[in-house]
């Protein structure tokens, strides 16, 4: 069973984010990126499947600052191959990322065949789409998203998808398939720094050149701004009855009742 994992980095929201001078995008001078949490879960799910069934796990990423650390960490965790797509400047749109990944997967000779392509079901910067479905569409493979559990058998992956309120659904997906991972069965494993260092010494990261793709134009950011945050709760006043009523109102307004 061979698995390809697609991973990208997103802005680290632990850091203060600022709007750039164009008023439409993030200020990149202080931007720090971190791997998309769900992609990390996708990698973990792939490694769990490898632990169970054997086979190879290949990780494909877009180049980014500090991406080598991410890739070596993945190698230290048991990933077999780490490949990065070079020659892309920070990819702002998910559509572009989809095109880049799609092209590279189709054109790089030894990435396919695989049984599964796993990637995070969503990322915090996915403004104009989610990655997994369009890639599945390009490849003509089946797709299922919001997956939290995968079991592999010959030619079929049985996956569990999360709905709401703890209810989940079980699906059979014929392989090869693309899955959008919501969470791996276990939290991503910890790999000690020493092992990452050892991987840096003994393993290599492969590179492929980014194909030329035209950027998507149908979604355009006009303006970006920090939402107003007061840093303090909005206080509800009145008698217990009154506040209960007010809470009810706002729960209803938020679609929570």
């Amino acid at each position: 069973m061979n698995i390809l994992v697609l991973m990208k980095v997103v802005p680290d929201v632990v850091e203060e984010l600022e709007v750039g001078s164009d008023g439409k995008s993030l200020d990149t001078s202080f931007l720090r990126t971190i791997i998309n949490e769900r992609d990390d879960h996708a990698l973990e799910q792939a490694l769990l499947l490898k632990d169970k069934h054997g086979g190879k796990v290949t990780l494909l990423t877009l180049d980014a600052p500090d991406i080598d650390d991410v890739l070596f960490t993945a190698l230290a965790k048991g990933t077999d191959r780490a490949v990065k797509i070079c020659g892309v400047e920070s990819v702002q749109s998910t559509q572009t990322a989809v095109k880049l990944f799609g092209d590279v997967i189709a054109k790089t000779p030894d990435l396919l065949p695989v049984d599964l392509i796993l990637t995070g079901v969503s990322a915090i910067d996915d403004l104009d789409g989610l990655m997994a479905a369009p890639i599945a569409h390009q490849l003509g493979w089946p797709y299922t998203g919001v997956v939290t559990h995968v079991t592999l058998a010959d030619k079929t992956a049985t996956v569990i998808k999360e709905f709401a309120g703890g209810v989940r659904g079980e699906y059979d997906v014929p392989t090869p398939a693309v899955l959008g991972i919501q969470a791996a069965e276990k939290p991503p494993r910890y790999v000690p720094v020493a092992k990452v260092r050892a991987a840096m010494k003994s393993q290599t990261i492969e590179t492929v050149d980014a194909p030329a793709v035209e950027a998507a134009t149908t979604v355009e950011v006009q303006q970006m701004a920090k939402p107003q945050v007061t840093g303090h709760a909005e206080m509800l006043e009145g008698s217990a009855e009154d506040v209960a009523g007010k809470i009810c109102e706002l729960l209803a307004k938020r679609g929570l009742l």
Binding site: V10, P11, V13, L17, V19, K24, L26, I124, D125, L127, T217, T218, V219, E220, V221, Q222, Q223, M224, A225, K226, P227
Partner: peptide
Amino acid sequence: LYGGKMEATVTASA
């Protein structure tokens, strides 16, 4: 966007 850290005004012409 970005887990609620930003809000973008976007036009969609598709």
